[in-house]
């Protein structure tokens, strides 16, 4: 799954959780600006984990600010799974 596919998937999932259209949100937007509260963000993380069959390590989530940061962590876990 490449960066664009990840972003598309993310926008779909975010739209479901935020219950509004997030299909145009830019990758460099802050995660906290999705209009989703802390609990919703955890749900988004959980949904992403299930969709991609990965786990997003908490320590790395602590560093996440933007959507592309978050997808970067996901991509890393995806490639770790392929090679591992």
């Amino acid at each position: 799954m490449d960066t664009n596919e990840l972003l598309t998937l993310f926008r779909e999932l975010a739209s479901e959780i935020a219950e509004k259209d997030c299909s145009n949100i830019p990758a460099d937007a802050q995660v906290t600006q999705l209009g989703i509260d802390s609990l919703g963000l955890m749900e988004l993380v959980g949904t992403l984990e299930r969709e991609l069959a990965i786990r997003l390590p908490e320590a790395e989530l602590a560093e996440v600010r933007t959507i592309s940061d978050l997808l970067g962590v996901a991509a890393q876990q995806l490639s770790a799974r392929r090679t591992g």
């Binding site: 906290t32 600006q33 509260d37």
Partner: peptide, 12 residues
């Protein structure tokens, strides 16, 4: 303001 409140308080 919106960004700060969301980041620090966890509410949008």
């Amino acid at each position: 303001a919106s960004r700060r409140v969301a980041a620090e308080m966890g509410v949008q």
